Simulated scan of single mutants.
Amino acid sequence: MKNYEQEINLYFELKGTPESSRESYLRRMQAFITYIQNQNKIIENITETDIQQYILYIKKEKKLSAGTINNYISGIRWFYTIILEKEWNARKIPRMKRTPAFPIVPAKADVLTLVNVTTNLKHKAFLVLLYGSGLRVSEVAKLKICDICSKSMRIRVENAKHNTNRYSILSATALDILRAYFKAYFSPKAFHPEDWLFPGRNPGEHVSIKTIKNTLIKLRNRLHLNQRISAHTLRHYVESQVMGSVLIFCPNFGLFLLEHSP
C-alpha cells in the first residue's frame, strides 16, 4: 500500500474527496491488498479470478452483508482501474443484489430516556441534533456556530454526504439545549461564528465522529436499552416520519405531526 499511497492521496486531493470517503476507500483497499499478499501474490499481477476469490472470502468467511460487499467491490474497482490502470469486467465481477430492509427506528420512549438522564450538556446536544434534526453523526461533528439559525429555526448542513448542502429543522427544545450548552462551554466574546460548535481536544479541530458514537453507546449500555440504538439509527426517526407524508413542524422536541398524503 505504501507504494501507492502518494498516488492515491493525489487523486483524492484533485477530486476533493471527503475525508470520510478517503478513509473508507483506504480501509477496504488495505484489507484487499493484505489478502492478496497473504496469498503470496504480487498486487500488480492480480487478475479477475483473484478478485472473485476475495469476494467469495468476505462473503462466506467474513459473512459480510451484500451492501458492505458492494462497497468493497467499489473500492477494489477504483484501485484496479485508476491505480493499476486495468480494464474492469463487470460481467465477471458483478455487484451483489441487495434485499431491501426497513430502517431501524428506535422507540421514542427509549430516546427520550437517553436525553432526560443525560446531564452533560454537550452530550445532550449531540442527542437532540441526531434525533430531532435527523443529522448524520459526521454532520453533527462538523457543525459550526454560524450553522445554527434561531431566527429561521433551521440548521445549515454544508458539504454533507456526496458533497451536498441542505437545511434541517431546529426544534425549540433543541435550541434551548444548545443555548445552555453554548453558555456553559463558550466564554462571551471569545468565539467566532466560524468556530466549531463542538470543538475537539486539539485546537482548531472539531469533535471526532468516534467520540459522538462512543458517547451514545456508553449511555445506551448503561441504561440497558436496545442494542440497535446508535448515532446512525437515531436519525431514522425523522426519515421514517417524512416518507410519504406531509410534515408539520411542532416546536416540542422530537415531535413531528404528520398527515398522510391522499
Score class of each variant (00 low, 15 high):
residue 3 N to E: 14
residue 12 F to R: 03
residue 12 F to S: 05
residue 17 T to P: 05
residue 22 R to S: 08
residue 25 Y to D: 07
residue 35 Y to K: 11
residue 36 I to G: 11
residue 36 I to R: 12
residue 38 N to R: 13
residue 39 Q to T: 02
residue 41 K to M: 06
residue 43 I to D: 01
residue 45 N to A: 05
residue 47 T to Y: 01
residue 48 E to R: 14
residue 49 T to A: 00
residue 52 Q to D: 05
residue 54 Y to K: 02
residue 54 Y to D: 01
residue 57 Y to K: 11
residue 62 K to R: 15
residue 62 K to I: 05
residue 66 A to Q: 08
residue 68 T to L: 02
residue 72 Y to A: 03
residue 75 G to I: 04
residue 76 I to Q: 08
residue 76 I to R: 05
residue 77 R to D: 00
residue 79 F to P: 14
residue 80 Y to C: 00
residue 83 I to T: 09
residue 84 L to M: 14
residue 86 K to S: 03
residue 90 A to L: 05
residue 96 M to C: 06
residue 97 K to H: 14
residue 97 K to W: 00
residue 99 T to F: 08
residue 100 P to S: 04
residue 105 V to H: 08
residue 107 A to Y: 13
residue 109 A to M: 03
residue 111 V to Q: 04
residue 114 L to H: 12
residue 117 V to Q: 14
residue 119 T to N: 13
residue 119 T to S: 11
residue 120 N to G: 07
residue 122 K to T: 07
residue 127 L to V: 05
residue 132 G to L: 04
residue 134 G to E: 02
residue 136 R to M: 01
residue 137 V to R: 02
residue 138 S to I: 02
residue 139 E to A: 01
residue 141 A to N: 12
residue 143 L to P: 07
residue 145 I to A: 04
residue 145 I to E: 13
residue 145 I to H: 07
residue 147 D to T: 11
residue 149 C to R: 12
residue 150 S to Q: 10
residue 153 M to D: 08
residue 157 V to K: 01
residue 158 E to Y: 12
residue 161 K to S: 02
residue 163 N to G: 03
residue 167 Y to N: 10
residue 173 T to I: 13
residue 173 T to Q: 11
residue 174 A to F: 01
residue 174 A to W: 00
residue 176 D to R: 15
residue 177 I to W: 03
residue 180 A to Y: 09
residue 184 A to H: 13
residue 189 K to F: 12
residue 190 A to K: 15
residue 190 A to F: 03
residue 195 D to E: 06
residue 196 W to L: 02
residue 196 W to Y: 12
residue 199 P to Y: 04
residue 199 P to N: 02
residue 201 R to T: 14
residue 203 P to K: 15
residue 206 H to T: 04
residue 211 T to H: 14
residue 213 K to N: 06
residue 213 K to L: 03
residue 217 I to L: 14
residue 221 N to S: 07
residue 221 N to T: 06
residue 222 R to K: 10
residue 224 H to Q: 13
residue 228 R to P: 00
residue 231 A to P: 10
residue 233 T to S: 12
residue 234 L to W: 08
residue 235 R to C: 00
residue 235 R to H: 01
residue 236 H to C: 04
residue 239 E to H: 04
residue 240 S to D: 13
residue 241 Q to F: 02
residue 245 S to H: 15
residue 246 V to C: 07
residue 247 L to N: 01
residue 251 P to R: 09
residue 256 F to Q: 15
residue 257 L to G: 07
residue 261 S to V: 04
